[in-house]
């Protein structure tokens, strides 16, 4: 546990001192600010975060892989240092601690980003009468969604030595998972099951203010699965 926190703290701090961390933060603030402004300046605007959450998802699918690409691929090659994975794998930490530390570190950074965006519901509260319960559910959903994207990106980062490959494949992968919902809808009966694999339906519930056990379980099990897969990838480098 102590090791998880050490690694998480190092990773989170690295985002605050690296260019990529700032780029992601700037893009996040600029984009959410713009969307929020466009939405509230509409003539029949309602005091809700729905529009922001809805549009934010697509941005996060693009941005989060930029955060996760360095987590493991960057330890093998990258501007952080070359071959630092050798240090990690020869220190007395378990593969689980390594993967969890990396995941928690990136999640902490996302906490910071989402905390910044709290300014929008706060503003809404000043100018209108938003439903705080719905907004809360939306944020919970957003956290699960980010956790999903980060775990997925972390897994792909464990597969390759190249940060670029990790980032691009994560973005493409997440988009495919996203679009599988529409594929399911278009394909109808036979492909209907595809919709379940997409995070869209699960995400949608949170926006509408619903926190259901099945949605939480869905996200948690996928997050666990991706982290487990990343852990296995790392462990496999030690298998005969």
């Amino acid at each position: 546990m102590r090791n998880v926190l050490s690694i998480a703290r190092r990773e989170c701090r690295a985002y605050f001192t690296s260019a990529i961390g700032y780029v992601v933060m700037a893009a996040f603030i600029a984009f959410t600010g713009l969307i929020f402004f466009l939405i509230v300046s509409q003539p029949q605007a309602v005091a809700s975060m729905d529009g922001v959450f809805r549009n934010l998802a697509i941005l996060l699918v693009m941005l989060l892989p930029l955060l996760t690409m360095r987590l493991l691929a960057g330890e093998r090659s990258g501007d952080q240092g070359i071959g630092t994975i050798e240090l990690l794998l020869t220190s007395p930490i378990t593969e689980w601690e390594l993967v969890l530390g990396k995941f928690v570190g990136s999640l902490l950074y996302i906490f910071a980003l989402l905390a910044v965006s709290l300014i929008y519901p706060f503003t809404l509260g000043r100018i209108g009468d938003p439903d705080l319960g719905t907004i809360f559910a939306g944020y919970v959903g957003l956290l699960f969604f980010c956790g999903y994207c980060l775990a997925f990106g972390l897994f792909l980062s464990s597969l390759t030595n190249s940060q670029i490959v990790a980032a691009i494949s994560s973005i493409v992968g997440l988009l495919v998972i996203w679009l599988s919902k529409f594929l399911g809808e278009v394909g109808g009966g036979k492909l209907g099951w595809l919709a379940w694999w997409s995070f869209m339906d699960h995400h949608e519930d949170f926006w509408r203010g619903l926190i259901t056990f099945s949605d939480c379980a869905w996200y948690l099990s996928f997050i666990f699965f991706f982290l487990f897969a990343a852990k296995q990838m790392i462990a496999s480098s030690r298998w005969r």
Partner: peptide, 15 residues
């Protein structure tokens, strides 16, 4: 736990 290792390419966190 009982091992100190300096790898050949001297991996460091440059930041």
């Amino acid at each position: 736990r009982r091992l100190g290792y300096l790898p050949e390419n001297v991996p460091l966190y440059l930041d």
